[in-house]
Design a protein around this nucleic acid. Sequence first.
DNA 1: CACCACTATGCAACTAGTTGCAGTGCAACG
DNA 2: CGTTGCACTGCAACTAGTTGCATAGTGGTG
Lengths: 179, 179
Amino acid sequence: MLVSLAEQPGSGYELARRFDRSIGYFWQATHQQIYKVLGRMETAGWLDVRTLGRGRQDKKVYAVNPAGHDEILRWMGQPGDLEILRSTLAVKIRAAAFTDSPELPGEIARHRAMHAERLAVYLDMERRDFAAPETLDRRGRVHHVLLRGGILAERFFLDWLDEVVQALQLPTTTSGVNL
Amino acid sequence: MLVSLAEQPGSGYELARRFDRSIGYFWQATHQQIYKVLGRMETAGWLDVRTLGRGRQDKKVYAVNPAGHDEILRWMGQPGDLEILRSTLAVKIRAAAFTDSPELPGEIARHRAMHAERLAVYLDMERRDFAAPETLDRRGRVHHVLLRGGILAERFFLDWLDEVVQALQLPTTTSGVNL
DNA sequence: CACCACTATGCAACTAGTTGCAGTGCAACG
DNA sequence: CGTTGCACTGCAACTAGTTGCATAGTGGTG
């Protein structure tokens, strides 16, 4: 999976930061996870490494080699799992059918606010980097459509949380216009 | 987390099946996972067990006791992680910026079809079980709003995949009207 | 009555992912 | 020129979750 990201070479650290952008909405990984996978893929022979040892500071730059490229194609060829959605908040809401937790409304509001903030960030990115979608090349269109996924996802969460607030007849604290 | 589901008593097997319904859209677990967590929670003293041993067939019915109920309240009191979205398909799409995989369009169509099918199932459930939302009690409203989450989620996936198809200028294979 | 599907539980071994810690070297701030 | 912050890598120990297997009773079909 990380293969697809080492596609454009870089160090583990850079990869971790890149995760926050491009596909952070659809896949998340800590730097630990990345270093582990990087190591595994190196021993599998899919990556080439150059160690830039200026001084004693070691920075390992990984690049996908032909074997790695083959592996990507093989992986893309086989069917993958359906998208996974996971929400502890939903479980808490479920529990609200039985239990009365005074903190739940606040928690819902918190989630709503965070999703709203993310949406704002993503929309900003879209405005800045993808102002003219028609002029984009394939690479640009791919990046744009992934960002679109992030935007639609956040909108989904907001819409849903608004329905939740309504259904539980909670005070409409921070609900407002989305777009 | 499973606590909230053992709220209405049942055996591990029943829990696993219940997962497929109520909150399957927001949390998934195999029966293995459930048996493990059930065991852990029993030793933690949050559950009471009655073993129905008709013949030698052992069926363990779990029920949350007061200590378990306290634990649920405690858990609901602390802030939880943001909703997590995870899609290997998105990673493959990302890879499509560099690589040309002949199977990718089919894979996208497959995912789209599966999401469409799920959406149809959920809408059916809504039509059958929640025809008159105004008449629902708290419990019913909670179940309904969770189902709404599933519906909105599937719609989000469909919308997004349609954008993907358009962005990659793939033949519009199975795309159609959603609702 | 042989076979299959379903209800029902669980172990063992594994992979994936998280958390906490720990270190280095560089650049900027005051 | 000491401290802070950040780029950079990694180990060790853990929790979560998956996969494959084993087992057993029950009810229905051909």
